[in-house]
Amino acid sequence: MSLEKFCNELICTSRDLEWEAKLMPGYASKQFKGREGTADVALPEKVVGLQLGDYPVLAGEIDLHDTDQVRQAIKQFHNQVVIARSYMEASQVINTHLILRSTVVDEATDWHVLINLIERDEAVCRKLVWKAGDKEEFSCAELISRTFLARPWRKNDMVNNAPLDHNQNLVERVLIGKGLPAKTAKQWIEYARKFNDEPLIMIPKLVEAWRKGK
């Protein structure tokens, strides 16, 4: 799966969520917005800018050979993110993600360690690495399930008639455990439910029930 096709998968997934999703060429620009000339910093050779809902995303490719090579590549992507920020709204910056597709993996190295090195480094922005396996469609879906695009609850069956009274029983046990008489604890729960939107009424009643229960 090419980087372009991978980006299309991200866009399609976003649109399935009814989010606006589009390519953002400015995020992949070699120059800061409003400035002339290419930025005088090392930049990745291949990167694609996307806007997925409220999330700015830079998608790129990285080789997983050794630690020094990975650190150098991440530095280049960090430079790209800094340029991309000049094309974002201030409120968008905190949501920036860098998603990297591994193109070459040296099986002689522990690529698990290299991926952890990348993903645990949250300097500049959040990072995720996609190591495409033999079943690329599956591994792509697995990556998406780890991103802000995941909506696992859409796949779960709805549960009707859930035992909501368990919460009340838990609260009652906690109140009794903190020293309230059982009768007072029941009154507190009743008042909290009945006067939840009327604190000026609820609070005096809680105090009155506590005094009577002492």
Rank of each mutant, 00 (worst) to 15 (best):
Gly133Cys: 03
Phe138Asn: 09
Val57Asp: 05
Leu149Pro: 01
Asp68Phe: 04
Pro152Arg: 02
His65Phe: 11
Leu10Ser: 02
Phe6Trp: 08
Asn161Met: 07
Glu208Asp: 14
Ala21Asp: 02
Ile203Leu: 13
Asp134Leu: 01
Cys140Trp: 00
Glu172Asp: 11
Leu58Phe: 09
Gly177Ile: 13
Ile201Leu: 15
Trp210Phe: 15
Gln80Asp: 00
Glu190Gly: 13
Arg35His: 12
Ser145Pro: 14
Ile62Leu: 14
Asn160Cys: 13
Ser139Lys: 06
Glu142Ala: 11
Arg71Glu: 02
Gln187Cys: 11
Leu98Ser: 12
Pro163His: 06
His166Val: 15
Thr96Trp: 03
Leu128His: 06
Trp130His: 13
Pro181Met: 06
Ser91Ala: 06
Ala185Ile: 04
Lys135Ser: 10
Val93Ile: 14
Val124Lys: 00
Arg71Lys: 09
Gly34His: 00
Glu198Lys: 11
Ala185Leu: 02
Ile74Arg: 04
Asp40Val: 12
Glu89Ile: 05
Lys33Tyr: 01
His166Asn: 14
Thr96Ala: 07
Lys186Gln: 11
Glu45Gly: 07
Lys33His: 05
Asn160Pro: 04
Leu17Phe: 10
His65Trp: 08
Leu43Trp: 12
Glu122Trp: 01
Ala42Ser: 08
Leu180Glu: 07
Pro25Thr: 00
Val129Glu: 01
Arg15Trp: 00
Val129Cys: 07
Ala162Pro: 05
Pro25Lys: 06
His65Asp: 15
Thr147Trp: 09
Phe77Tyr: 04
Leu128Cys: 05
Gln187Phe: 13
Arg126Leu: 06
Asp68Thr: 11
Ala209Cys: 10
Lys75Trp: 04
Lys135Thr: 11
